[in-house]
């Protein structure tokens, strides 16, 4: 198998398409790259959620989540993240029309949504750790809870940093309608984080 591959490589190399003729434009290449990253990231989340499900089904003493976790405040967090997805698509829509002011406004609102989410999550964690005395070592419930929501929180934080860089570059006038692809790719990441939260909210909090 590997021999055949090494023999074939030079032939393929000669027949390779020149980079100029590649069907992938810089924009579509960025988009494809982000989708591949998201597919890999989804596997990580998927494995973590599947493991959580297996541990939960196999455990007799699993508590009812709503007796420990605050559902109303988490529902607000879910709603904030959904709203930030809407402002994100509006930011993309604005930069496509080369509406710089609109782009900055909606991107700033998206970042604010992310920060509000992180603030509420920090408040929730503080309550659980200091008042309820939960830690990652307390039980399988707390371990899976902190790992799943913590891993997702890291993604939100990463998204806030990512979008802040785009906002700063926008303020410097570097993002124009011709470069809307940068915003679109960042939006894909942001919506993915929203999508994963929708699933975590259901599996970890509601069920």
């Amino acid at each position: 198998m590997s021999e055949a591959a090494t023999v074939q490589t030079p032939i393929h190399h000669e027949a390779a398409i020149e980079p100029v003729q590649s069907p992938l434009t810089p924009d579509s290449m960025g988009k494809l790259g982000m989708w591949l990253f998201l597919a890999a990231d989804a596997m990580t989340f998927g494995a973590a959620i599947a493991a959580y499900g297996a541990l939960r089904i196999g455990n007799l003493n699993w508590p009812v989540p709503s007796t420990i976790l605050g559902i109303p405040s988490t529902a607000v967090m879910t709603f904030i993240l959904i709203c930030s997805s809407v402002t994100m698509v509006e930011a993309l829509s604005a930069i496509r029309r080369d509406d710089q002011a609109g782009y900055r406004k909606f991107l700033a609102l998206t970042i604010l949504g992310g920060l509000a989410f992180l603030g509420l999550q920090a408040r929730e964690w503080t309550h659980l750790i200091l008042t309820e005395g939960l830690s990652i070592k307390t039980s399988l419930f707390s371990a899976t809870f902190f790992i799943l929501t913590g891993f997702h929180g890291c993604h939100v934080f990463g998204g806030v940093v990512y979008l802040s860089v785009l906002l700063l570059r926008g303020l410097a006038g570097k993002i124009t309608a011709a470069r809307y692809g940068l915003v679109e790719v960042a939006g894909l990441y942001w919506h993915f984080v929203d999508l994963v939260w929708i699933l975590i909210f259901t599996f970890v909090y509601l069920i």
């Binding site: 494809l32 989708w35 597919a39 989804a42 596997m43 998927g46 494995a47 959620i49 599947a50 499900g53």
Partner: peptide
């Protein structure tokens, strides 16, 4: 590409 992880996670489950 987007459906691939969904399918794989279903198998994993």
């Amino acid at each position: 590409i987007a459906l691939t992880p969904v399918m794989l996670v279903t198998f994993l489950t």
